[in-house]
């Protein structure tokens, strides 16, 4: 080691990044990497990182093993010829692909981004519902459901002490309750349904019941806009069944 290697610590995101840096630094040909030299440099960097108390992630070590393996294969001329494949080929392919997507990422970053480079009309949340143009309803994703669940969960007061054991509810009862509630009003906010719960147990039950109803197609879950409120509506499905 020459004693003064400059490392920008945040630069390397993973072993491929580091390798690519080493390749570029010395303007090496990716297809013909001097594996012995690069392995040496790579390991030097790892030692350096460890010396600086940087937690060297497992991926870095796995790549070190790969490099050493390739190096050992290069030392065995017969094995090399038998396969008729340069042991470095796979590595070169990965480096090139990695490089390509580094560039693609940079390229994407230079696009005219909405909210950064170009702007469109934004309206306060309340007013958006009044627009007459029907936008197709967005199906709410599991993440949206979880988001609402988490929000309500965080608002939930801690369970009261000295509470007499409530009659435990079953998921079936909860489902009936939800359907009945929706029957009254057509559609309702997922949050409101969650708020009917008196404790965490019921809240969990409520979440399960909503998912189960959706699975049975008794309930449609949707949003009117991205990140908007999650709404529930009864469907007619399965009503004729019994």
């Amino acid at each position: 080691m020459e004693g003064h290697i400059e490392v920008k610590l945040d630069v390397f995101e993973g072993p491929l990044d580091l390798l690519l840096h080493l390749v570029r630094k010395d303007k090496l040909n990716i297809y013909d990497i001097p594996i012995s030299r690069i392995t040496e440099q790579y390991l030097e960097y790892l030692t350096l990182m460890q010396g600086l108390n940087i937690n060297v992630a497992g991926e870095f070590l796995a790549m070190a093993a790969t490099l050493l393996y390739i190096k050992s294969r290069m030392l065995l001329p017969e094995a090399f010829e038998d396969d008729e494949e340069d042991p470095r080929e796979e590595l070169a392919r990965r480096l090139l692909e990695h490089q390509l997507f580094q560039e693609t990422g940079q390229h994407l970053g230079a696009f005219a981004l909405l909210g950064r480079d170009v702007f469109a009309r934004e309206m306060p949340q309340e007013e958006t519902d009044s627009i007459g143009v029907p936008e197709p309803e967005l199906a709410a994703s599991l993440f949206d459901l979880l988001r609402v669940y988490r929000e309500v969960l965080s608002r939930m007061p801690h369970e009261l002490q000295h509470e007499i054991e409530l009659e435990p509810m079953t998921a079936e009862q909860k489902m009936e309750q939800i359907l009945a509630w929706l029957a009254e009003r057509g559609e309702g906010l997922l949050e409101q349904i969650f708020q009917m719960s008196r404790n965490r147990f019921e809240l969990v039950l409520c979440f399960i019941a909503v998912l189960e109803l959706a699975k049975r197609r008794r309930l449609a879950i949707f949003q009117k806009e991205a990140f908007g409120s999650v709404l529930l509506r009864r469907t007619d499905y399965g009503n004729n069944g019994h």
Partner: peptide, 19 residues
């Protein structure tokens, strides 16, 4: 506005998924 900044890793990941 505090324009949303995308980290290099976010952009790279996004581009891999996009393509």
């Amino acid at each position: 506005a505090k324009p949303e900044r995308f980290s290099r890793s976010a952009l790279e990941t996004l581009s891999i998924i996009a393509y």
